[in-house]
Amino acid sequence: MIPARFDYVAPTTVDEAVRALADAGEDGKVIAGGQSLLPVLRMRLAAPTKLVDIGRIPELRAIREDGDAIVIGAMATHYEVQRDPLVREHAALITAATDTVADPQVRHRGTFGGSIAHADPAGDLLAPALAMDAEMVVAGMDGRRTVPAAEYFVDFFTTAMTPAELLVEVRLPKYTGWRAHYEKFNRVAQSWSMVAVAAMVRTDGGTIAEARIGLTNMASVPVRARAVEDALVGQAATAENIKAAAANAANGTSPTSDGNADGEYRSHLARVLTGRALTAAIG
């Protein structure tokens, strides 16, 4: 299958890209790694008339340390994120989740920012970003603004960005010394998550000092399992305590139903996988 015709520009700066998007209006579309977009265009499920390729903007590729944050450029590929020592040290949950994204070929091309901006609730990087209180740095004609993860994801495939805005980078607070695990559950290795749990924990001796948990595909947007987090804080890191806390994992979620999993099963999985993610994280 072949996409419908479109115009193509490949700006080399963020300013040019933003201008190109503004010019294109509603019918413009950013192409980052293209790993989600190109199949959609091939199937002609969407037909933007102008693609703005941000793959030739060097600034967007960098992963850097900035004070208390790790900053991942929107065009850093999954492959680069997976192997980045800064990410591994200070944002281990991102490393763990990125390891599970799609397959090696897609990880070579697909980008961190592309996945975030695509806002597929089954995508594996949304829940970690939410759990970590990531901040999305967004550029528009009026300059840049920062959107907290909790406000960035609005609905299925919908973010707080306007069509004329571009995700430039994602700032992740450092969680140095936290232990993290991403527990993914899918039908076959290459399919999307039915449910996944992004968990990170800071322990103090044998006690859980802090916990942050994000759930993948338990609503139209990633959700925090706050009831579980609250139940864990101050508790000894025992199997019983984890299990008791994990029983709250589906609270406040609104999972969809499909052929692979109905809502009841998704909720059940969220509870089981939260327990497993925490157990694996604590080690």
């Binding site: 039908r187 076959v188 290795a189 290459q190 399919s191 052929g259």
Partner: peptide
């Protein structure tokens, strides 16, 4: 793994390799 599923309107909902679960080497 595999099943060709039609919805109540007769549309094949497992109509791509993303929805029809062919096993890979990892499965």
């Amino acid at each position: 793994y595999e099943e060709a599923v039609h919805d109540e309107s007769g549309t094949l909902t497992s109509g791509t390799f993303a929805d029809y679960h062919l096993p890979s080497a990892a499965d």
